[in-house]
Design a protein around this nucleic acid. Structure first.
Length: 430
RNA sequence: GGGGGGUUUCCCGAGUGGUCAAAGGGGUCAGACUGUAAAUCUGAUGGCUCUGCCUUCGCAGGUUCGAAUCCUGCACCCCCCA
């Protein structure tokens, strides 16, 4: 028997974009413990921030006394969801998929409670039931119940058909049916009655609800969460260099933390509600303080703390904060080698041969490229010309400068920076 | 199977024989202003051993002193008809 009204909770947090039945759901969710699922297609070897919202919803359902199912799309990932995609996608190889499924499953486990009682989470892979389905069997059991004219009205299909430069293959067109059937299967096997997903999943979710009604005559429900966008219209969680990954190998805790520290003021409250477990009172107080003195970035700090701890654990958070304090704080010259050691693996860095510093030294332009702060030497030159390059936090204006042992901080590190906040460490060994 | 349209630098998109590394916009990067914010303004934006050289306009050949632009073949995409 749920003690918390999860519907109210989600509403307050702004996590509800659309539901299939606003009038019924609150009562439905208070009546007794329900089972709810969200799907995650293994399109990469890690989840990213974009997946976090659905995960947080599952978490909140579980906390409120419901049972969450995290579904990994081993089967659907083989097809490719056309929702929100403007172009046909390339198929992933089975080997790639296997690797991705494994990685994603591992990450999902972090966010839900799999221990104990009846609300303990389930981790399922739809390949387990989809893989066995024969084509003819699928057409007879599932396809027969889905009118094509309904499929054609779905947003994901419509936008693709309207484009003059890209089409939609039969394969991707069929994706919807697979996801629809997943829902039916989960209802039959696990009594799952609710599906949650991003707003782009609406079409797929309702397809599942329709199918369940036609096939077995039951009423299922769907909830979608909003797409979080920045003031420039881009999706939250995207960076210049791609997604913000949850895998520390792909996005270090420091980089992850920095992303949230830089969130614009207008989004802080939303993010706190979406991504942290802080209570209403705590969030209200943080937001109030933040409004009074936005320059202190209290909101961003709390946000970065909470979400980094959630994703990377206490040690990840500490590493991130340490690196931040060192790089954005003290004079670089005063930083000890030990401190540099500590942050070395968190900040983007490169180890190179010490011999580079000998003789005339390492041209600054090459150094910036080595540290991945510039893609080409031309770009490095340009950056210097425009006054955006720093060695140990000192601006460099001469493109011809060469780095020698004299530039070392501690005894083997040089701290490079491009722009206001992109740091790169070079370590000289050997 | 038939007919038509298309493929340009990160993206959109101009360019139909030399003055094209290729207009314009977007994005991105840097600077100024700030608070490691938003907005705004400025500049940059193929590579390099950089007053020059090299590589790019779907792919492969050809015509020409010279091709993103003309010709031939191929691939892929879109639309219409069957």
């Amino acid at each position: 028997m749920p003690e918390i009204n999860v519907y109210e909770e989600l509403r307050w947090r702004g996590l509800i974009h659309q539901t299939t039945d606003d009038a019924v759901l609150p009562g439905f969710l208070m009546e007794r413990s329900r089972t709810v699922y969200a799907g995650f297609d293994p399109t990469a070897d890690s989840l990213h921030v974009g997946h976090l919202m659905a995960l947080m919803i599952l978490r909140r359902f579980q906390k409120a006394g419901h049972r969450p199912i995290a579904l990994v799309g081993g089967a659907t990932g083989m097809i490719g969801d056309p929702s929100g995609k403007s172009e046909e996608r390339r198929l992933l190889s089975e080997e790639e998929l296997r690797k991705n499924v494994e990685a994603v499953e591992k990450q999902l486990k972090r966010f839900l409670d799999f221990e104990g009682k009846e609300t303990s989470a389930l981790l399922l892979n739809n390949y387990d039931w989809m893989g066995k389905f024969g084509y003819l069997e699928f057409l007879r059991e599932v396809g027969k119940h889905v009118p094509v004219n309904v499929m054609l009205t779905k947003e994901s299909v419509k936008t693709r058909l309207e484009r003059s430069d890209s089409g939609l293959s039969y394969t991707e067109f069929s994706y919807m049916l697979l996801q629809a059937y997943d829902f039916v299967h989960l209802y039959r096997e696990y009594g799952c009655e609710i599906q949650v997903g991003g707003s782009d999943q609406w079409g797929n979710i309702t397809a599942g609800i329709d199918l369940a009604r036609r096939l077995i005559g039951v009423q299922l429900y769907g909830i979608t969460c909003p797409l979080l966008t920045k003031s420039d219209g881009t999706k939250m969680g995207k960076t210049e260099s791609g997604a913000l990954w949850l895998d520390p190998q792909k996005t270090s805790p420091y980089q992850f933390y920095q992303y949230w520290i830089n969130v614009e003021d207008d989004l802080v409250e939303k993010c706190l509600k979406f991504f942290t477990d802080l209570s209403r009172e705590e969030i209200a107080s943080i937001v109030a303080q933040h409004r009074e003195a936005p320059e202190n970035r209290l909101g961003q700090r709390r946000l970065a703390q909470e979400i980094t701890r959630l994703v990377h654990g206490e040690s990840g958070l500490q590493a991130a904060e340490r690196a931040t304090a060192i790089l954005f704080g003290a004079e670089i010259e005063q930083i000890s080698e030990r401190e540099l050691d500590e942050i070395f693996s968190d900040v983007p860095s490169r180890t190179v041969s010490r011999s580079q510093l000998e003789g005339p030294g390492l041209p600054i332009v090459d150094a910036l490229c080595l540290a991945d702060l510039a893609k080409t030497k031309g770009e490095a030159r340009r950056t210097i010309q425009q006054g955006g390059a720093y060695v140990n936090n000192r601006r460099v204006t001469d493109q011809e400068v060469r780095l020698t042992a004299e530039n070392l901080v501690g005894d083997r590190t040089i701290v490079l920076r491009v722009g206001k906040k992109r740091y790169g460490l070079l370590r000289f060994e050997g």
